[in-house]
């Protein structure tokens, strides 16, 4: 039996009827077609599926879609605005924070949580904050450099790390439901 689900993803409100067993990552990829969120391990070890749920980095392979009912979600597709890359994206590009790019969406979104907590993080704070995200290319040093570069960019721009979608008219209706 399907249940109603209302979520706001990258500023757009969606209503769907979903099976209770549907994972959030499958909802994002299969139902919404947002394949930028990757499935690496399916066991919440690798962090490739990380998305921001109400501002917290969560592993979407370990959450049911219905648990996100009423939530505000940001995926990698929601970082760039009007063709303008988010500072975290620019920093990963400039600092060579990626090789194959598979871990990158989850890595960037988790990094935003780190930057939200520590606007100018130390290397240790970055490494601790990104512990749950694995990079099989093993490019960790460049990832750390990228997060530090992003911190400087955000500070220079006076920007909050986590993008808050413009308050569209649909925001009120997305507020119902509980996680």
């Amino acid at each position: 039996m399907k249940h109603p689900l209302t979520v706001r993803v990258n500023g757009t409100t969606y209503h769907h009827e979903v099976e209770p067993r549907l994972l959030l990552v499958h909802y994002l990829r299969e139902v919404l077609g947002l394949t930028g969120t990757h499935i690496g391990c399916d066991t919440s070890s690798c962090g490739a599926c990380t998305v921001l749920l109400d501002g917290l980095a969560v592993k979407s392979c370990t959450l049911l879609a219905l648990q996100a009912d009423g939530a505000e979600i940001v995926t990698v597709e929601g970082l760039a605005r009007d063709g303008q890359l988010h500072p975290i994206q620019e920093a990963f590009w400039e600092e060579h924070g990626l090789q194959c790019g598979f871990c990158t969406p989850g890595m960037m979104l988790t990094a935003l949580q780190v930057l939200e907590r520590h606007p100018m993080p130390t290397e240790e704070q970055i490494r601790h904050g990104l512990e749950g995200n694995l990079c099989r290319c093993t490019g960790y040093q460049h990832i750390v450099n990228a997060v530090q570069a992003a911190a400087r960019k955000l500070q220079a721009a006076g920007m909050a790390p986590i993008p808050r979608p413009a308050a569209a008219g649909a925001s009120a209706e997305a507020g119902k439901g509980a996680v």
């Binding site: 947002l34 394949t35 990757h38 890359l85 994206q89 990963f92 990626l98 790019g101």
Partner: peptide, 11 residues
Amino acid sequence: DPRLITGRATY
């Protein structure tokens, strides 16, 4: 990199 950092890459 642009497609990899914006989630538009096809794996």
